[in-house]
Design a protein around this nucleic acid. Structure first.
Length: 651
RNA sequence: GCGCCCGUAGCUCAGCUGGAUAGAGCAGCGGUCUUCUAAACCGCAGGUCGUUGGUUCGAAUCCAACCGGGCGUGCCA
């Protein structure tokens, strides 16, 4: 039983005579903010006193009198307005720690209320290279899956790939007109990616060329309006000020659009071959869309191409996932749900949820201006329809209790509409949750892009991480020479990808965060490297003493907490369950990174403390310290593994 | 216009179901390697928690208004 559970049980008994509803009061037991207030504190006397109209300190004294916890706590103290401060007995901590030695679960029991959770994450478009935007979804989603599983839930991870969208029409069009057969035979995926880029580039060229005059006149209009407004502006008028601001924004954004349009035009116009190609395919965008709709309509030729393209595209994705150590139970893309879409719309219509509006079939959700469009006026279905079909499948076929969507925060409105529509549609017993996350920013505070403004490829990101990590590994091992070339390269992989993942996970997922190479692989601070290093140092101790950690009989040892760093570390290690609970409460992996960092910090203090040497100790004390080290190593390895981060025995 | 998110130390961020003097990490300053990997440890310094009101014994946390930034907003996904 965990410390917090134990305390809650004891407090429940003591609080029962005082109130009908103890549950919220038990939530007010927590680890102390400051060691001088003990190890844990219970804040329940204040609200209770208020409710009963009694001085909180009296209530606290009442509670303390009823509390039965002298078997594992020092006598509780009442402090301040009515805080109850608790300090665990050293012997009890030592016994608990000895009890979890050798246990990868660190004494955390699986949940007694398992749920079946579908986690929908990563979801790239096939045939389009994955970029940094897919990183967060992949990394956060994977960490959530691993943590849910560890906690004892049934998890189905599902990669809802985009394999049926407009990009396929572009690829098909490109393949028909521009394919380089040799390249395609040698490396189909990169040739398809090239074709996609090419068709995209030419379409963009035409649409930019068409749009440019409008944009330029828009700009003139906006500039004129701005000039007029500036001339008439009354500095005291707030409304006018706001208007000025929005006009300036309009000018700036139009200017940006013009710049980007010009770039798109010149990228083709500056190249004679491209220019000729563009001239020969003036209607490329429409024709590419036509290929898409032919595919959707069941056109045999296009279906054949799709069948041919897809396996290669999936294999390419798998390569990236292998490098990231991310895996899925299911990869059910949009195409999988295609046959279900007409039925979805029919069912919505039957139930009176979907109605015709301006030619499109829409669900209107109260309190939302925007409609939820399930069928466009041209008859095509939308991702709203697919998402509803997906819910149907997950509820009816997979029998899931809960579905998580690890998707960019910008889609929150879509999910809001989706979930409400699903509930009205009858899927009200399943819980749905948009696990949203912010944008990855570059150092300038703008979305992380390459210098030319395109997205940064995920593969090149991993490449760079591993290269940078290798430099760090080489530097660190220069004097020790403990690693050969292969080992260094293995460590660099672990440190590099671990660094990327950790940098992402240690931020609150809601925030945008700034991507910073130097910080990510920094030798110190809150990084994966710091944790991985702590792990390697522990392995080093066992190696030095010629003890095989895998067979180390730590459960037979007694734990002695002779020094403050030992006690602090032991107590920290006993609170792993709180980190797990913290992650799963709102699906925030940063709760676990925080615990790991704190724990690793406590270990580093222990390790560096002159009175806590393991090698320097003998007999029972050395055995005890080895137990501490072993549990610490398990904590790091297990905790990092829940984040999808690996460890190395030697670094 | 409407909706969502954000504003905490020089920088990057935690903390947000209200709790004791607001925490880390970088960067800065000063210490610590003949002893388990110094990719480390110890210490110092650094903040009107955007502003103003409100609720409360108690507010970074809840509510309202405002200021500042980002994103989304009917047929792309």
């Amino acid at each position: 039983m965990s410390i917090l559970q134990e305390l809650k049980t004891r407090f429940a008994a003591a609080l029962e005579p005082l109130t009908d509803d103890v549950e919220p009061l038990l939530e007010m037991i927590r680890a102390s903010a400051d060691p001088k207030f003990g190890d844990f504190q219970a804040n329940c006397a204040m609200p209770l006193g208020k409710k009963a109209g009694r001085p909180p300190r009296d209530v606290a004294a009442d509670i303390v009198e009823r509390l039965q916890l002298d078997d594992f706590c020092e006598p509780p103290e009442v402090a301040g307005p009515g805080f109850i401060n608790l300090r665990l007995k050293d012997d009890w901590i030592a016994a608990r720690l000895a009890a979890i030695a050798g246990d990868d679960r660190l004494g955390v029991a699986p949940t007694d209320k398992p749920r079946h959770v579908v986690v929908d994450f990563s979801s790239p478009n096939v045939a389009k290279p994955m970029h940094v935007g897919h990183l967060r979804s992949s990394v956060i989603g994977d960490a959530i899956c691993r943590t849910l599983k560890f906690a004892g839930h049934r998890v189905t991870s599902d990669n809802h790939i985009g394999d049926w969208g407009t990009q396929f029409g572009m690829i098909i069009y490109g393949y028909r007109h521009f394919v380089n057969a040799e390249q395609y035979a040698a490396d189909p995926v990169s040739e398809l990616a090239r074709l996609y880029r090419l068709v995209n580039q030419v379409s963009d060229y035409h649409s930019a060329t068409a749009k440019l005059p409008t944009l330029q006149s828009d700009l003139e209009q906006h500039q004129q309006a701005l000039a007029n407004a500036e001339a008439a502006a009354d500095p005291a008028d707030k409304k006018a000020k706001k208007k000025l601001k929005s006009l300036r924004k309009a000018v700036a954004s139009t200017e940006e659009n013009i710049t980007s349009a010009k770039k798109k035009i010149s990228s083709v116009a500056d190249d004679a071959d491209l220019q000729a190609l563009a001239a020969a395919h003036p209607d490329i965008a429409r024709l590419a869309r036509l290929e898409t709709s032919k595919l959707h309509a069941g056109d045999a030729d296009n279906q054949k191409l799709w069948d041919e393209f897809l396996p290669a595209c999936l294999a390419a994705l798998d390569q990236v996932y292998a490098r990231l150590d991310v895996s899925f139970d299911l990869t059910l893309g949009e195409s999988f749900y295609n046959p279900m879409l007409p039925g979805v719309v029919d069912s919505l219509k039957e139930k009176g949820l979907a109605t015709d509006s301006e030619g499109a079939t829409c669900v209107f959700v109260e309190g939302n201006d925007a409609p939820f469009i399930v069928q466009k006026s041209d008859g095509a279905y939308t991702y709203a329809t697919t998402d509803l079909a997906t819910i149907q499948y997950r509820a009816d076929e997979l029998q899931a209790d809960e579905a998580l969507y690890v998707v960019d925060a910008r889609q929150s409105e879509h999910f809001n509409l989706l979930f409400q529509t699903a509930a009205m549609w009858g899927y009200d017993r399943m819980t749905f949750r948009h696990v949203s996350f912010g944008t990855v920013m570059g150092k300038g505070g703008k979305p992380f892009k390459t210098r030319s403004g395109s997205n940064i490829g995920l593969e090149s990101l991993i490449d760079e991480a591993e290269q940078r990590a290798r430099i760090v590994v080489d530097e660190n091992d220069r004097e020790r020479q403990a690693l050969n070339d292969q080992q260094r390269s293995d460590v660099a992989k672990i440190v590099g990808t671990g660094g990327i993942k950790y940098a992402d996970l240690h931020h609150n997922r809601d925030s945008d965060y700034v991507f910073d190479w130097d910080k990510m692989l920094a030798k110190s601070g809150d990084t994966a490297t710091y944790m991985q290093y702590a792990y390697a140092r522990i392995c080093g101790i066992f190696a030095e003493l010629n003890i095989d950690r895998t067979t180390f009989a730590s459960d037979r040892a007694t734990v002695l907490l002779t020094q403050p760093p030992e006690r602090a570390l032991a107590l920290q290690l006993l609170q792993f369950d709180q980190a797990i609970d913290g992650v799963l409460a709102e699906y925030r992996p940063n709760q676990l990174t925080a615990w790991l960092f704190e724990t690793a910090g406590k270990f580093s203090s222990f390790y560096a403390h002159p009175e806590c040497s393991v090698k320097g100790a003998t007999g029972e004390l050395q055995q005890s310290r080895l137990v501490l080290c072993d549990v610490m190593a398990r904590a790091l390895k297990t905790g990092l593994s829940l984040l999808g981060i690996q460890t190395a025995d030697v670094m």
